[in-house]
Nucleic acid binder design. Structure first.
Lengths: 232, 232
DNA sequence: GTGAGATGAGAATGATATTCTCACCGCCAT
DNA sequence: ATGGCGGTGAGAATATCATTCTCATCTCAC
């Protein structure tokens, strides 16, 4: 998590195998402090960025703004991050991860598997709306940019959510409230549908553009999971 | 379509109301040639951009590249477009519009409403895949950028497709093969689901990330449209 | 042939990300 | 205590683009 260039460097130069144990321990001790300091700095950058996202509703702020707000320096910023891109990715993964935890907990308190799944869908939908609790932009201009340019990283970031939804789908299937299928694929389809449709709903854009709500999307997805009533 | 700054200027300065008809005709005649020339230039820019998109698989090319390739000048580019943004938007709308026409035609040759809808879904899915006929990027980094920053324009661009799908859903409902609902909203949901899920499927990214295929997404959507088997 | 608008060539501007320079500082093994 | 090393700050230097501007030239309808 947060692969920092410096941490790699430290590991390579300060722990060159073949050292007596005491030396390793010593180095370890002295390294720990440095690592802590570094993590604090990183956190200040992340916090500053989060604030800026909240304020400007976009990731269009400049690196300089992050630096100024966190009262550090450009030099330091690039010491810790490979670039603005890395910082945003860290925030993105973090947001999805926290979201997954939240949803898992909330759904866990539902004994009915179908209601649990429904709750999860509703929560995901609301958190994916264009400007929800700005604190945690599951979707931002950045997220979509990632989707096209680095799909693999998006997939990675989605993993925590995918896991939660897969579990919920499995439970529902085990309980027999929806037909058995391939839980992971179903969960994937479900997630993508909910997230993207939510995203597309930011603007009651004039005449057209149906503004779908949580209940509608849930019905749609439930139908999708339930499959078509088999006909001749 | 393609609101060009100069055309507005011409209209304002050369047709100042209250002119005898002959004069308007004269101006009209003399303007026509200029308009044609301009349209050719515009087209050259568009073609060049299209080529670049095809080659680089992204809209990250520079305005300078468009200019060079079309053997025109920066001056001229900005004479005709408000900026790179306008040019991309034009290409985007055009692509969706052509796609809509294609789908409408193909679906039209299906007598069974359900098969027609299925065909439409399949075609849309395939055209929305990350790197299909690169000629017509329904989805590009640009499209997604638009989605966040100018949702209204996306909605506008989607209209042709939305119209087609709305018709197909209506036909299916009229034929009784799916339950009646709100065709426009259903079509919207359908489109978004298909397009976005397709987009999210570009990369078999290692272990996770279920790669959904056209048949799967069709089943899912059909289920969604058909609704849940009514329960107590 | 004349004048208004269009064009070309390319310099100028402005916004950003990213890198580099250099002086300084704190830590810790000797 | 001290010498060296990695981290830091301040900010200049680069690099890349989009967009605008300058000026000379061109084209066409009159």
């Amino acid at each position: 998590m947060l692969p920092l260039k410096w941490s790699i460097v430290l590991r390579v130069t300060a722990v060159p195998e073949e050292q007596p144990a005491w030396r390793q321990r010593a180095v370890e001790r002295s390294t720990r402090a440095a690592k802590l300091r570094a993590e604090q700095r990183v956190q200040r950058f992340l916090d500053a960025a989060q604030e800026l996202i909240a304020e400007k509703r976009t990731t269009d702020f400049t690196v300089q703004e992050i630096v100024d707000r966190s009262k550090q320096s450009l030099r330091s910023f690039y010491q810790h991050f490979d670039g603005k891109h890395e910082l945003l990715l860290a925030l993105f993964e973090d947001a999805l991860s926290k979201s997954a935890a939240e949803i898992r907990e909330a759904a866990g308190s539902q004994s009915d598997p179908l209601l649990a799944l429904r709750l999860a869908v509703t929560m995901l939908f609301e958190q994916s709306l264009p400007n929800p609790g700005v604190e945690r932009p599951l979707f931002s201009d950045f997220a979509l940019q990632l989707l096209v340019k680095h799909p693999a990283q998006v997939a990675t970031a989605h993993l925590p959510l995918l896991t939660v939804f897969t579990e919920l789908v499995e439970q529902a299937e085990d309980a027999g409230v929806i037909p058995a299928g391939k839980p992971r694929r179903q969960a994937s389809l479900l997630m993508q549908t909910v997230m993207f449709v939510a995203q597309g709903n930011g603007v009651p854009a004039g005449s057209h553009a149906a503004g779908v709500n949580a209940e509608e999307i849930w019905q749609f997805c439930l139908g999708g999971l339930s499959g078509v009533p088999v006909r001749s």
